[in-house]
Design a protein around this nucleic acid. Structure first.
Length: 466
RNA sequence: GGUCCCAUCGUCUAGCGGUUAGGACACUGGCCUCUCACGCCAGUAACAGGGGUUCGAAUCCCCUUGGGAUCACCA
């Protein structure tokens, strides 16, 4: 009874994008679900494109998503000895050979092949030469010319490849670095990865990797090729699809819980359920409920799901997520109890944290700026008296809670024989500067007596001055 | 072009031989109401096409069409 070991193996050549995040999530969920081990491996064998910033960007994104790993991070660039050991073995056993053909020669080979309508690939010039190791030589895999290689994929099913479609691909470059297909297999073997979950854009690599497993005499892992995430134009997500970096969604005010919920549901389903907490995802995730067809990333639905998560969250848990947005708007965030109250009034009307911060503006401004239209329409002389009395009565309250506040309004409506609507809008403008806000009793309660009285006074002055 | 994958409302999807083809987002109407939201109710909207298999196909097989992926000393 072997335990599950999964890995996420990004290459640090840019930020972590949506597709990568989902691959990481599925691997993580599967490991957590099965009580297995999740490993992080950085595939930085491309010296030219790998950067330190990209590694950091990947860490940042995983941290935001709260996807943690049990082993690693391992860097392929630090495991060269291991790859070389395997190379020696493969060459010694006749599974690989040195090749001294130059890139120009390879290119010429391809041209010739294309011209005759054949497949453009390595023609095997050095395959049987038994060349010794030499400066600048690459190592190629001696790929079988006959037969077939089969993938038994848990999501895609049975996939057959004719071996003559494959060519003698490079295992180690002339600069001594291993290539992706080789390093990935050596690592997956040595790290004892049991289940490889990755995007289905890797299907074409899989037969090569299976051949390598066989040459190495190792048992095959379980393959699960999950469908890709596409942009609105149905092509692979890339820069031109707008925000594809995971952290961009954080900065747009998405909740990590909502984001992983959305990512999980894109390609995986659990009956009709749409909303999942992180814990539910771990409990319910399984590979056999992963679909086969690619899905389009729908930002509108993501926002709706985010709204659901904001609404379902406890205000106290939202505080730390909202604070950065409040701070970037220039507000003081010392008083967390106050922020908690603010959040409670805004949860049902914000789709994102950024939006919530915007809507929270009036709670933090020291001098409320009136929206011209709203002030003109509602702060009129005819409400001067009711407003004045309201201010006085609210100022006189000893227990400033929603119930007491509502009582004040009830009395006011009676004495002036007006409906709540007549007085609520002027008060709303006085307190928030606009005609749109959370419920009037709620905002009075949260703002607190001092702010409310001061703002009503300001409104009275404004009316008097008209 | 070769190879491989995929195909249910606009989008995400349920469905795993017999359903009025369900849900969610979006959209449209209504209710609620102190504004805006939330919530609730209702509605529009899909099995790509053609052949089979079967008493019976969205479900199984084949073909066509469409879309995607991949063809490196990148991962």
């Amino acid at each position: 009874m072997s335990t599950v070991r999964t890995r996420f193996a990004p290459s640090p050549t840019g930020y972590l994008h949506v597709g990568g995040a989902r691959t990481a999530l599925f691997n993580w969920l599967y490991a957590r679900h099965t009580g297995g081990t999740f490993i992080l491996r950085i595939e930085d064998t491309d010296q030219a494109r790998s950067t330190e910033q990209s590694v950091q960007a990947i860490f940042d994104a995983l941290k935001w998503l709260d996807i943690d790993w049990d082993e690693g991070p391992f860097y392929q660039s630090e495991r060269l000895n291991l790859y070389n050991d395997y190379i020696d073995r493969l060459v010694a056993q006749g599974h690989a050979y040195y090749c001294t053909c130059t890139p120009d020669e390879i290119e010429a080979m391809r041209e010739r092949a294309r011209a005759t309508g054949a497949k453009p690939r390595y023609d095997g010039t050095c395959r049987e030469k038994g060349l010794p190791l030499s400066e600048g030589a690459v190592v190629r895999f001696k790929s079988p010319v006959m037969g077939t290689t089969v993938i038994e994929d848990v999501v895609k099913g049975h996939i057959v490849f004719a071996n003559d479609e494959l060519d003698d691909f490079v295992l180690r470059r002339s600069d001594g670095m291993p290539t992706y297909n080789f390093a990935a297999v050596v690592d997956d073997v040595s790290m004892e990865i049991t289940t490889i979950i990755r995007g289905d854009d890797h299907i074409m690599n899989t037969p090569k990797q299976i051949l390598l497993y066989q040459a190495l005499g190792r048992p095959l892992p379980v393959f699960a090729h999950v469908p890709m995430v596409l942009g609105n134009d149905r092509t692979r997500m890339s820069k031109r699809h707008g925000a594809t970096s995971v952290t961009a969604y954080r900065d747009m005010g998405l909740l990590p819980e909502a984001f992983i919920n959305f990512l999980a549901r894109l390609g995986w389903s659990y009956g009709d359920q749409e909303f999942f907490t992180r814990q539910e995802l771990i409990e319910k995730f399984s590979l056999d409920r992963v679909g086969k067809s690619a899905g389009i990333f729908d930002a509108v639905k993501l926002n709706a799901l985010n709204a659901d998560h904001i609404q379902a969250a406890r205000p106290a848990d939202l505080v730390r997520h909202l604070k950065p947005f409040l701070e970037s708007d220039g507000w003081n965030t010392q008083d967390e109890a106050y922020i908690k109250g603010v959040i409670a009034t805004l949860q049902t009307r914000s789709k994102t944290l950024k939006e919530m911060a915007m809507q929270a503006r009036f709670y933090f401004e020291t001098d409320v700026a009136y929206d011209e239209q709203a002030a003109k329409k509602f702060l009129k002389p005819n409400v001067l008296e009711p407003l004045k009395q309201l201010k006085e009565q609210l100022a006189a309250l000893t227990t400033f809670d929603e119930k007491a506040i509502e009582q004040v309004f009830v009395q006011l409506m009676e004495t002036f024989q007006i409906k709540l609507g007549k007085i609520a809008q002027p008060v709303r403008v006085a307190l928030t500067g606009t005609s749109v806000s959370p419920g009037i009793f709620e905002i009075i309660t949260v703002l607190g007596q001092a702010r409310v009285v001061a703002r009503l006074e300001k409104a009275l002055d404004y009316i008097a001055g008209r």
